[in-house]
C-alpha cells in the first residue's frame, strides 16, 4: 500500500481536486481521479521530497482559526493605514531568530506571514536560523519578534516537530 501511495496526503488532495473540478461523485470520476491521485503521488516520490509527520490535528484547526482571525484583523489595520491622510510612520525589516527547522513548517509560516497583510516574508537563513520579514507598520521590533514566535512558531513546532 505504501509502495502504491507514497504520499497519501497529496494523493487525497489530488482526488479531491479532480472531483471538485468535475463537480461529480460518479464512479467513473472517482476511478479516474484515483488513477490521477496514484500517478501524481508516484511522480512526486521520484523528486524525493523531505518527509514529515504531522501530529495533533486539533492544533492545526486552532492555528487555522488564529490565522483567519489575524488575516481579518490585519486587513482592517492595513486598510486604515492606506486610507489615513498621512503616510505610514515607519516601515522596515525585522530579523527574527527561529528555532523552527522543518521545511514544511517553514513553508506554512511563509504562507501565514505573507497572507496577513502588513507583513511579507523576505528570506530565511537556514544556517543561522534567521528569518527576515518586512513590516509595513513597524513601531517596535521586539513586539513583532515576540508576536511571530509566540503566536505562530510555537503552534507550528507543536504540529510538525
Amino acid at each position: 500500500m505504501t509502495a502504491l501511495v507514497p504520499h497519501p496526503v497529496l494523493s487525497v488532495f489530488l482526488l479531491g481536486l479532480w472531483l471538485l473540478l468535475n463537480q461529480s461523485l460518479s464512479p467513473g470520476h472517482v476511478l479516474l481521479g484515483g488513477v490521477i491521485a496514484v500517478a501524481g503521488g508516484l511522480a512526486i516520490s521520484t523528486l524525493e521530497m523531505p518527509r514529515t509527520r504531522v501530529r495533533k490535528p486539533f492544533a492545526i484547526v486552532r492555528l487555522a482559526f488564529v490565522v483567519l482571525l489575524d488575516i481579518v484583523r490585519s486587513n482592517i489595520a492595513v486598510t486604515r493605514i492606506i486610507l489615513a491622510p498621512t503616510p505610514p510612520a515607519k516601515s522596515g525589516f525585522v530579523t527574527i531568530p527561529l528555532e523552527l527547522r522543518d521545511h514544511y513548517a517553514l513553508a506554512t509560516l511563509a504562507c501565514i506571514i505573507t497572507s496577513t497583510p502588513g507583513t511579507v516574508w523576505v528570506s530565511f537563513d537556514s544556517a543561522k536560523g534567521l528569518l527576515l520579514i518586512h513590516v509595513l507598520d513597524l513601531i517596535d521590533e521586539t513586539t513583532w519578534v515576540q508576536l511571530i514566535k509566540t503566536r505562530y512558531e510555537r503552534a507550528l513546532m507543536e504540529i510538525f516537530e
Binding site: 493605514i81 503616510p87 497572507s115 496577513t116
Partner: peptide, 20 residues
C-alpha cells in the same frame, strides 16, 4: 495603497488585501 505608498517595500503590502 499601491498608488499612494511612496516606496516599493511599502507597496508590497497593499495588494495582499485584495488577494486575501
Amino acid at each position: 495603497g499601491l498608488l499612494r505608498f511612496k516606496s516599493f517595500y511599502a507597496r508590497v503590502h497593499a495588494p495582499t488585501i485584495g488577494t486575501t
